Amino acid sequence: MRRDCSMSLRLTDIQQGYSKTPVLRDINLELGTGITGLLGPNGAGKSTLLRTMATVLPPRSGSVEISGSQVESERSARQVRGRIGYLPQDFGHDPAMRVLDFVEYAAWLRGIPARQQHEAAVRALEHVDLVGLHRTKMGKLSGGQRQRAGIAWAVVGEPDVILLDEPTVGLDPQQRIQFRSIVKSLGRSTVVLSTHLTDDIDAVCDRVIVLNEGQISFDGTVSALTAEARDDLPGQSALERAYMHLLTKGK
């Protein structure tokens, strides 16, 4: 879905935090086409990192570059946000708003010309198989349907970068399988999928970044991470055991 861009997202020497509390330290990342999993325990800084990538939270220091454009001010951040599709873990919505209106509103926020907003919203709903519910109010959707509407919100207008924060939390197994299928279809974009579930990573990701205590402890392919598994650590799969090995290193 993404327009041609060899490197859509670059973070350089990012330091981030809230008030006097540091959260992210020395983050350096370059992301191009494909699905990257951001794996880490609760409190590792995953949501903060996604908010920084989305230009919602300016870094304390370091630089953010989106599709070749440096984000140096709120003005430059506004200029690149149309290239970013961001789905927070608890995304806000008006329960009385129709699904189509919800996605059209996202198109308007992304700066899509008014005459193109309806068509762009319909295409996004087709992508997540929700066209048949376009007149349904958001508050009437099931949890899985609401998450699919959230993805439509994130992908409307075919942004260069798509950021999904813990999107499978609260979904039943069937809904998670359907969700993964949708995420796989986004692989021509630069997608970052934040999660603490290793089976989501194993199912859809080309690359995995493990974030622990605000720092990157691994960046590579899923198979390379799996190779770090140790049989003496807990876990239902080699990937889970490798993940546990990273989290317990140095402890």
Rank of each mutant, 00 (worst) to 15 (best):
H118T: 14
L171Y: 13
R135I: 00
E166H: 06
I14Q: 14
E166C: 03
A152M: 09
E72T: 14
Q236D: 12
G235S: 13
S76C: 01
G220A: 10
A121R: 08
E126A: 14
Y18D: 06
P22A: 14
P22G: 10
F102E: 03
G157F: 05
G187K: 14
L109P: 12
K251V: 11
E119I: 05
G157Y: 04
Q215M: 14
D206T: 12
L193V: 15
D232L: 10
Q79G: 09
P95G: 12
R188I: 00
V80F: 03
R207V: 01
G139Y: 08
L186M: 15
Q174T: 14
I182F: 01
G111Y: 05
I177A: 13
Q89P: 04
L38I: 02
Q215S: 15
E72G: 08
R176I: 04
G32D: 07
L130M: 15
K249G: 01
R83G: 02
Y86M: 11
R78K: 09
E119M: 04
I151S: 09
G250A: 11
E158C: 10
A107Y: 02
V56P: 00
D26P: 07
A114Y: 06
L239K: 05
R3P: 01
V222M: 02
S194D: 03
T52E: 05
T190F: 05
I177T: 12
A44I: 05
V56Q: 06
S47I: 12
T36N: 14
A120G: 03
V131A: 10
S8I: 13
C205S: 14
E119K: 02
K140Q: 07
H93D: 05
Q116K: 09
E104I: 15
D219Y: 09
I27R: 02
S142Y: 04
W153D: 08
G45N: 04
M97R: 15
K46T: 02
F102G: 01
I151E: 00
I182D: 00
D13M: 07
V210T: 07
L246K: 13
P167I: 10
L11K: 12
D219H: 15
Y105P: 02
A227Y: 06
L141W: 02
R110D: 02
L225V: 03
R123C: 06
S237W: 02
P41E: 08
L49I: 10
F218E: 00
L211T: 13
L133K: 13
D232H: 04
T48I: 02
D202E: 13
I27Q: 06
I209E: 01
D129G: 12
K20H: 13
M7D: 06
L141K: 07
T12A: 08
H93G: 11
K184H: 11
W108C: 03
A149F: 05
Q178D: 13
I182C: 07
V210A: 11
D172L: 08
A242D: 11
R60K: 08
Q117N: 07
Q175F: 01
D94N: 14
M244K: 04
A154G: 06
I177D: 07
A242K: 02
A114K: 12
R180A: 03
T168F: 01
D90K: 15
A54H: 08
T48H: 09
I182G: 08
Q175C: 02
L130E: 01
R2K: 10
H196V: 03
R81D: 00
T33E: 15
R25D: 11
L130W: 03
P22V: 06
E228K: 11
D129Y: 14
P88D: 04
